[in-house]
């Protein structure tokens, strides 16, 4: 049962990745995506400050970027 679940999950992931080839927009349709606030790392200063707080208060770090914290707070 677990294996079937795994297989189903892998199938979904692979189909999504393959499906990527047909997704997307033409260069002239990037008006909204090109906005500063649509960048995946918009507000980078806030994100790095948050990472520092959560790195020092929780057992998890990274994900968006590298997991290393560079401080002795954890």
């Amino acid at each position: 049962m677990k294996n079937k679940m795994k297989l189903a999950l892998i199938t979904i992931v692979v189909s999504q990745v393959v499906g990527c080839a047909s997704l997307g927009v033409q260069p002239w349709e990037r008006d909204l995506l090109a906005k500063e606030e649509m960048a995946l790392n918009a507000e980078g200063v806030d994100l790095s400050l948050d990472d520092h707080i959560y790195f020092s208060k929780e057992a998890t770090s990274g994900g968006r970027g590298f997991a290393g914290g560079g401080c002795g707070c954890n």
Binding site: R30, L33, E36, A39, N41, R64, G65, F66
Partner: peptide, 14 residues
């Protein structure tokens, strides 16, 4: 934003 993206290991989007 793009530079940060690249350096954090994320993708460059535009």
């Amino acid at each position: 934003a793009t530079a940060t993206c690249v350096l954090l290991g994320s993708a460059q989007t535009h």
